[in-house]
Design a protein around this nucleic acid. Structure first.
Lengths: 145, 145
DNA sequence: TTTTAAATTTGTAATCATTACAAAGTGAAA
DNA sequence: TTTCACTTTGTAATGATTACAAATTTAAAA
C-alpha cells in the first residue's frame, strides 16, 4: 500500500475535516480500493476491523467528504451511489452485462474543463460515463458460438 | 405541439412495442416536456387525464422503452431516475443550488462516439454531465452583494 | 487531573424510489 | 362467444438513504 495512515490523516486534515479513526479507515479503504465501492462494500470490509462500525457513520463520513470535495459520487444505475476519491479527471465504462465498472482515460477536449464558465454557468464537476458490453463479456459471447 | 398521437403511435410501433393508450400518453408527455421528468412528475401530470393510471404502469412502460432503446435514463443525483427521449446525443448541466437541469449541446470529439468499440469494449450509450452553479443562481448571488 | 461542552459515532425507526406479484381488465384471434 | 395472451392496476415488499436521539469520544477550560 502506498498510503500510510499518517499520510491519510494529512489529506483529511488539509481539507478542514477532523481526522477521526473511522474517517481515516474509510479514506484508507477508498484509496486502496479504487473500485468505486458502495456503502455496503465499504461496510462489509471495515466492520471486520471495527466491529462497532455503523453504516450511518459511513454515510455521514462520505457525505462530509463529498461536501469538502475529497470524494465524488457516481450514480450510474439509479440503485446505489458509488464513491471515488477526487483525482485526475477520468470517466467510466459500465458493462451492462456483468455490471463491472472500468476506469476510462480518455482525452476529450471539452468535457474535462472543470472550473470553467460556459454559457454563464460555472462548472465545478464533470462526469462522463459509457455503457455497453465489456471486452470480457464480448469474448464470452464468442466462445459460446 | 409538433407531435400528434398518430405520429407517436408510429414511433412506438416502429420499435416493436404495442402502442397502447397509456404508452402513447407517456411518450407524448416525454416528447412535449423535455425537462427530464421523474416518474412522479409524469404521474402527477397524466393522472389528471387518466384517473385510473397507476405508477406501476409508468415504471413498466419506461423500463420497456429503455429496453427497446426509445428512452434513456439519467441518474444524476442518486435520488430519482429521470427519463429522456433518445435523440441527438447531448449532455446535461445540473445546478447544485436550484437543482434545475439544462441541456448542453457540446461538440466533444470522443464522448459522443456511440456504437464504437474502444479498447475492446463495445460502447452503446454515452452520458456526460456537468455540475455547478447556473447563470441564474450566480446572478442572484451578485444581486445580494 | 477533573469538569464541561462540543463533536462524533451508533442504532433504530422512518422515508422514499422502485420492484414483485397477483388479480383484474382488455383486445384480438379462433 | 370463448379463449388466451398481454397490459394495467393496487398492494405489499425491498433496499438505499436519512432523521433523530442516545451513547461515546475528544478537546478545551478550570
Amino acid at each position: 500500500m502506498i498510503t500510510n495512515l499518517k499520510n491519510i490523516k494529512t489529506i483529511i486534515s488539509s481539507k478542514g475535516v477532523k481526522a477521526t479513526f473511522q474517517r481515516i479507515k474509510i479514506m484508507e479503504y477508498l484509496l486502496n480500493n479504487k473500485s468505486h465501492p458502495t456503502v455496503e462494500e465499504i461496510f462489509i470490509a471495515l466492520v471486520k476491523q471495527i466491529p462497532t462500525l455503523s453504516k450511518t457513520t459511513i454515510y455521514n463520513t462520505l457525505n462530509l467528504f463529498v461536501e469538502k470535495n475529497i470524494v465524488k459520487t457516481l450514480n450510474f444505475s439509479g440503485v446505489e451511489t458509488r464513491y471515488d476519491v477526487v483525482a485526475k479527471s477520468h470517466h467510466h465504462f459500465i458493462c451492462k452485462r456483468c455490471r463491472k465498472i472500468y476506469d476510462v482515460n480518455v482525452e476529450c477536449n471539452f468535457l474535462c474543463d472543470e472550473n470553467k464558465v460556459v454559457n454563464g454557468n460555472q462548472i465545478e464537476e464533470v462526469t462522463g460515463y459509457f455503457k455497453g458490453i465489456c471486452k470480457k463479456c464480448l469474448n464470452n459471447d464468442k466462445a459460446l458460438n
